[in-house]
């Protein structure tokens, strides 16, 4: 179990893995995540499942190399095994026929958005997908999104691909153009915050899928807590999806920085140790 069947680079820091996990492949639904741990002393990190193949018995994960733990995971190759992998966790996305659904993903948030786009399309919705990235080489999963969306709009900060501008510009264009019944957004906290502010102006119900710090991922530690509608919620068991208009994204952003200094130090050490070897 947990054997890496396929590895591909989406960009220098974003890696795609296909991992053998037949039970999870069978059980997972859109919105579910897994926890992975590399090495005996590794850290448990949450990753949303991007896709699964029940015949192959595999799941797909997209990992951005940011800290030591994701770097260790990204260093694994085809044929290697992920030490620990557990899931599917969290509540599945609420899928129904809303009418027109706008799916807005930024950065590696596009990966967890893919199964939601697929499921929304399958449920009979008209799906408009907006993919945002800093520049062309960071745009991921475009083909797969095309295959499952009625329309895909690409936004890049630097204009190297698609339209130049940030994600909210693309969203507003659609909202001005046509009626949208539901918006789903996945990406960095700041991005989701501005998406939520915008869709609130237009009264479009919006779901955000949150990716917070977790330890066990099963409700035990509370590291993932966020404030939603003034109440503390656990992303791992109450989420990961919440009404974006109720989420305190500023607090979420702040909490994501809890270990910033420690992580930076650890990453520098890791980089020194791997380059000196």
């Amino acid at each position: 179990m947990n054997k890496i069947l396929k590895k591909a680079f989406f960009s220098s820091n974003v890696v795609y893995f296909e991992v053998e996990a037949p039970l999870i492949a069978q059980a997972r639904k859109a919105g579910h995540f897994v926890l992975v741990k590399v090495g005996t002393n590794g850290e448990r990190i949450p990753l949303t499942i991007a896709a699964s193949d029940t015949t192959k018995g595999s799941i797909s994960l997209v990992v951005q190399r940011v800290g030591v733990s994701s770097a260790k995971l990204c260093a694994l190759n085809e044929g290697d095994y992920i030490t620990d992998l557990v899931g599917p966790l969290g509540k599945a996305t609420h899928i129904e026929k809303y009418g027109t659904v706008l799916c807005a993903g930024g950065g590696v948030g596009v990966a967890p958005l893919l199964p939601i786009v697929e499921a929304m399309k399958k449920a009979g919705n008209k799906v408009i997908t907006i993919l945002a990235a800093r520049s062309k080489e960071l745009v991921i999963l475009e083909e797969q999104m095309e295959a499952n969306s009625d329309e895909v709009i690409i936004m890049t900060d630097d204009g190297t691909y698609g339209k130049k501008g940030i994600i909210t510009a693309g969203i507003e264009e659609v909202l001005l153009r046509e009626r949208v019944d539901m918006c789903v957004t996945v990406g960095p906290a700041v991005m989701m915050k501005y998406v939520a502010l915008l869709t609130k102006q237009y009264n479009v119900p919006t779901m955000a899928s949150l990716n917070t710090i977790m330890v066990d991922g099963t409700g035990m530690c509370g590291a993932c807590r966020v404030t939603v509608g003034g109440k503390t919620k656990f992303v791992c068991v109450d989420g990961p999806e919440f009404d974006a208009h109720q989420v305190d994204f500023d607090e979420m952003q702040m909490r994501l920085g809890s270990y910033k200094e420690i992580e930076q130090k650890a990453m520098n050490q890791y980089l020194t140790s791997t380059t000196s070897n």
């Binding site: 850290e43 330890v215 035990m220 530690c221």
Partner: peptide, 22 residues
């Protein structure tokens, strides 16, 4: 944080000893 989080990081994950968990 909760005592569960604090103790899990340290006892289960080896934080502050040999673990990658901070």
């Amino acid at each position: 944080m909760s005592s569960n989080e604090y103790l899990t990081r340290i006892n289960l994950m080896g934080a502050s000893r040999n673990g990658d968990t901070p």
